[in-house]
Structures are given as C-alpha cells and as structure tokens.
Write a protein that binds this DNA or RNA. Sequence first.
DNA 1: ACCCATATATTCCATATGGAGTATATGAGT
DNA 2: ACTCATATACTCCATATGGAATATATGGGT
Lengths: 212, 212
Amino acid sequence: MEYMGELEVEVFSPLALSILELLDERPMHPYEMASTMRARHHDEFIRLNFGTLYHTVDGLERKGWILPIEREKEGRRPERTIYRLADAGREALTRALGELLRKPTREYPQFAAGLMFMHHLAAADAAHHLNQRAALLDAQVTKFEHVLAELRRQGLTRLALIEMEHKIAMLDAERKWVRKLEQEIVDGKLEWKVGIDSGHGMLRSSHGTSAH
Amino acid sequence: MEYMGELEVEVFSPLALSILELLDERPMHPYEMASTMRARHHDEFIRLNFGTLYHTVDGLERKGWILPIEREKEGRRPERTIYRLADAGREALTRALGELLRKPTREYPQFAAGLMFMHHLAAADAAHHLNQRAALLDAQVTKFEHVLAELRRQGLTRLALIEMEHKIAMLDAERKWVRKLEQEIVDGKLEWKVGIDSGHGMLRSSHGTSAH
DNA sequence: ACCCATATATTCCATATGGAGTATATGAGT
DNA sequence: ACTCATATACTCCATATGGAATATATGGGT
C-alpha cells in the first residue's frame, strides 16, 4: 500500500491563522505582522518568532492564500514584501477558525508529566511543590486580570478579549485543583503508594534525613 | 555583548523525564521504553515518536545521566543497546520532577487562537461551533473516566493515576466554560462587536444568506 | 557633528520533531 | 511448507522551530 499523490493535508497552525486574520484587516509585510501581534499581546497566546513567521508566510503564498502586492524599497533599507489576502485565503480563514473552535486538539501540558511521576517524591516534598505552583498560578491570574482590566479601559470589548477570560478561567481551574490535591496529600487522604507491580524505588527527599 | 561559554541550559523535556523514570525502575533499551510507555498509556500525556526518543536517549547519555551497559545481538536482529540510570541521572530526575511540579510553563493551546479571532464569525456560527466543542469534550471526559475506572480495577492506586484525574478536571473545566460562553452568545449577553479601531470585516456565515 | 541605542526587515543556520523506511523474527492460518 | 500480518529494533530524512546574525535607518543626547 503505497502513498502517492499530493493530498495537501490542510493543516493550519495558529500562526498561519493569525497571518490570514491580519491580512484580512489590511495588507502588511511580515515584520509589521509581528509588531502588530506583539502590540495586541497576541504573542502571549500564539508562538511567534521570525524564522517560523517568514516560513509560514512563504507557505501561505505557495498555497495561493495570500499574494505579494508590492516590493517596497525605501531608501537603502532591506526590501520588504507586502502581502494581501486572496479570496481563497479568506475562505481558508473561516474554515480554520471553525475547526479550531470545534475540535479539541490533543495537547501535552508539561504539568501532566510532573504528576505522572509525582510518586517518586516523598509526599511532603510533593505537597510543597504543589503549594508553590498554586502560588505562582495565583500570581499569573492576578497579572492577566490586570492586563484585561487595562485593555477594557482602553475601549476593547469582552468579545475582543475573550481569550483572556478563557486563560484566566483555565489558570483558576488548575489552581483550585492543585490546592485541593495539596490538601489531600497534607491530610494523608491520598494514599501514597502506586499499587501492583510498579515497584519503583522512591527518590530521596530534598530536605531532611539525607545522611546515612 | 557577546555570548560565550557553555552554559548547558538544563532543559528537561517530559520525554527525557520519562526515560529517566523508566530506567530508575530497571535497565531497558529504547524500543522497550516506547512499548512500556504505550502499555501504560503514558503516550497520551507525553509526546512519543522514535526519532525524538533515540535522539533524547543520546542526549541523556552525553550528559552522563544514563549509561549503556550492554549491546545485545540476538540472532541476526538489529543490535540493541540497553541503558541503565547513572547516579547523576537519578539526581536530575528529582530536580526535573520538582521543576515540572512547581513552575507553570507557558503553553499555547490551539483553542485560544480560535477564541482570539472568533469575532470574525457571525455570532450564531460561533455558538454552533462552541456547542459542538462542548459535546466533543463531554465525550473525551467520558472516555477518560472509563479508562481510569478500568485501571483502578486492575489495582492501580489514585496516586499512580493522578494525571488522569487532572486531565479529566481540566477537560471538565473547559467544557463548563465553553457551555457558559455558548449560552451567553445565544442569549445575546456577549455584545458582538470588538470596539476601538479594530474594524475587521466580518466573514460570511457558513449557513444562511450567502447570496447578495 | 558624532555616537549609540533602538527600530526596521529579513535571512541563515543549528537543532528538534515526526514519521517513513529498513531489516529481521515470530506466529497464526491455510 | 508457505504466506502474510505483526512485533522487534532501530536509522534516516524532510520539515519545523527558535534564535542569532546582518544590514540599514532614526532620533536623542553631548
């Protein structure tokens, strides 16, 4: 069973979506896209760096979703290419947006990996780490709430900032879950053993009886 | 201001942590690590593929955290290298685990990108997408709850499966948030405009009056 | 007039990632 | 006995990603 043909897997990275969205507003060159994204705090939610940006722009051009309309050369500065959104790109944007909203994608949060192997630590150490995490999550929630309030004051509507509300809600949910787990450990309600054959040795505690 | 020197940035990928954890249990060759991770459903939480696995193992060996102890050659099958955990690796494992548990890392969930540009769609379309998302999240929660129940029945403790509880809690939190947002849109409580200068054109609705 | 920090605009390159490819062994079915 | 799917155990390569490097322009201070 051989693979052949060019079935263009129709994958949209969040960055590609962002590019299409910016060009829907007005024609731009890549550097301006980056500046605009930063000005709008969009780089908090979408991974942004120059290598990937220019590469993604090239890809979108090859698909015919965006078109170069101008190669400006002000003075002797580096030449810049201004792109505009093609009709096909506008359709792609709508489709991509629908998919991102509809389909939950598998994500791999780092914290899950920490939890998976938490049993390697002594219960008291684990509880201590979780306590610190909850505090840091608290600080993040506060920070985002301030940013959100400030942007609302500048006249942006809830709709324009809905991803911030989502971020805050998710951070808060994790914070609550972490606090609850910490409490269960401290209270000894979470039995500190793994069961069946997984007889891993427990790693030594970071504080306390390390001498032997 | 030049950069020089070799400041080994002490970065642990979740996969590296997983490798150290497996070797803490017993010596293994990389292929067996992959099989074991799959058998334990760890690949649901940690990105796993062969290219990265072998590459990461090499990196850990270069750091002196794991050591090759045997190069078996059964029959004429491909030679396999069995590794064991070094003392330095055991320490690295404890450190990495602590960091993962303590420090929230910046993640870039795809859904955030969808939300950021949701205002490009008609309110009714957006609500429809969110409704579908909530249903899919529901299905995922149910699936994970079944897997969790099955593994508990096999004798694994809560501690050994705590990452599943976390996953379920996070999916559930998102599901509730999505349902609430959907309701606000349907009820017209979420004002459908973005404010200030961001006058983006609204894309056409996927169903309904597309003729003009 | 000159210096330097910052902004503008992109290119380049080393490394990371994902997945297909290679090669042999095993076991189930006909 | 023979075939074929699957398991074992990597290796290779194309593409993606992140960030440094390059090169010029601008504006404020001395």
